[in-house]
Design a protein around this nucleic acid. Structure first.
Lengths: 193, 193, 193, 193
DNA sequence: CATGAATGAGGGTTCATTCAT
DNA sequence: TATGAATGAACCCTCATTCAT
């Protein structure tokens, strides 16, 4: 039993690595199996197919990200504090498992439309926080048209910084940039912390 | 002769459409040919192979984007004005050919490392403008560590807004959001226009 | 111990059902196991493999059919009576277990050549009865060249009627058609009952 | 063009041979290709897949059989003559291409339900002839319940004779048995020719 | 006796590319 | 230039069977 569980987790981690390194289409089931130290057919005892493997990898971690952000913002008061907590949290998560984040970034376009509208989503968490700030009039003269536009800006600032890091245009840990990201987001949204 | 040129351009445009709609790996040479009104083999009269087609589509347009931005900033004075001009310009380019932009976004990960370090790049154009602003001390107390980090923020704000539009989280034209984007970037970088 | 026997019989019956519904090649060992309430590996406690399972299912029942027909004809006197008894008997057997008959029909082509030439066979039983009728000059002017040809006709009349029933070209029970089948066979063979 | 056509016909004939020799499931696309002197992928230029190959082989020839029988009966008058003509015709067709007939017999179970109810079918042709005989009161005291039952008998007599030949229980050509088959069918149906 | 993870060969199919026409 | 048949490798997946537990 323990062995089987390990196999499944091994497959998932190796697949993640390969997907990030070569793309999903560029990675064969054969290669995943070999890297995991098993044969091709064994994959199918643990996953219905390659699609399910990708989907599981995405949906499990995408939701987990959302829940982590939700927990972080829940402990704070005020938009600025909530945003800051989430940004710092994201930086820590990113540094802990860069590969995972890159995978999420890589496959989101093909998987997002399969996500249940009710399941937690990072976008909805952030948009919710900003909307709440609007409702409570924490923004004096918001430069954005609505909460979703502001959400795009926040996501852009944070994710593009991570992306620049991935392509070696930026170096060092994400956490070392957390303060700057917080300031940038506050500045973009017109928030005085 | 004009006909041959047309065929090549037809292939490129049809391929672009298909790549955006189905992904590069999800689009076969056969399908590109059929959509272009020719047969498989004929593709190879115009391109060495599928890879070259993708590469040409990417590199030509990626460089063109860079040159357009370069021209726009060149007419302005001061970081803020230059940035504003580029952002507004980008919004117009985007609205003129959304498919093209989506293609660039789609394939950049696999193509960026093939880009010649000397050929023009949107990232370098923007980073250059910001660096110049730093050199001329246009930023009072820059919240970013270096020009590249600030570039990431600007790109993030603009590109993520476009991405949100693609996934229908935002609606309307990009140009209608240009003013907001300019304000957001100024705010993020600590620029008073 | 009774349980073990039951398991084996359960497997055989479930396999029979699945083979008839989906074909032998279309039915996996995994499916047979699941339907039987056990797991794949357990099948191999009872049978050497899938082939043996098919073979056992075929040979046991094929021989049993032959023995039943043999017993039926043995109680009668004269070709006509013997044939009539076997035809009526077959109709009853068929109605009792249509699935079994369909299975026999389904796999006979692949299994017949493995049948021991000495073991009882329905064909030989019927051919024997007709040959005996020939030897005892019960046929006045036989329209057939030899006993085997006449046997083909009898089998054809009866089995094709059953086949038409399977494919819903005929309805009702086989036994309701027994009298007609007897008449048809007598007519074909030139027998006046 | 001539080459392509030949390839397609070659594939069809070789597939037919292999299907009859080893069964459809027992014959791989790889093997069909090799026997046809081409590679696997080439099959798919001519057929959408293995299923279509089987279906084409079946439907084309099944309909052709029906049309031949239809033409034969159309030239005759009276049930007895029509039936005799079809039986003799069938024997000739069979002798001309035994493999083809065996293929039809082999796969009919899996393909019959895909047959368009409107397309010609041997069963319907024969049943139509018998029904017509009933309508015109050519049968004095029909021993069968309806035309379809009589059709089953006729098909059984003829096809089972062919089947016995296939399994070497009978020898010689089918045509040599045509007179006997006609007599058998007449006898079974209670027809005095 | 039973489990179910793993094997390894084979299944049908797709696809970028080549080449005789 | 254009065609489309053919190639050959790789694709994802299924399956009968084995074996450690």
């Amino acid at each position: 039993m323990a062995k089987g569980t390990n196999t499944k987790e091994t497959i998932k981690r190796q697949a993640l690595n390969l997907f990030v390194a070569q793309g999903v289409d560029g990675t064969g089931v054969r290669e995943i199996a070999k890297t995991s130290g098993i044969t091709e057919g064994a994959i199918y005892r643990h996953f219905k197919g390659k699609d399910e493997l990708v989907w599981l990898l995405f949906s499990e971690n995408y939701s987990a990200y959302a829940e982590k952000l939700e927990a972080l913002q829940d402990r704070e008061h005020g938009v600025a504090n909530k945003l800051a907590a989430m940004i710092r949290g994201f930086c820590m998560f990113y540094d802990q498992d860069e590969i995972l984040f890159r995978f999420l970034l890589l496959v989101q376009h093909g998987q997002l439309d399969k996500i249940d509208d009710k399941s937690p989503s990072p976008v909805r968490v952030v948009a919710g926080v900003i909307q709440q700030g609007l409702d409570q009039e924490e923004f004096k003269a918001p430069p954005f048209q609505d909460a979703m536009e502001a959400t795009a800006w926040v996501f852009g600032i944070v994710l593009e910084t991570a992306t620049f890091k991935i392509y070696n245009r930026l170096t060092g840990s994400m956490y070392a940039r957390a303060d700057g990201l917080v300031k940038a987001c506050n500045g973009a949204l017109g928030l005085k912390p």
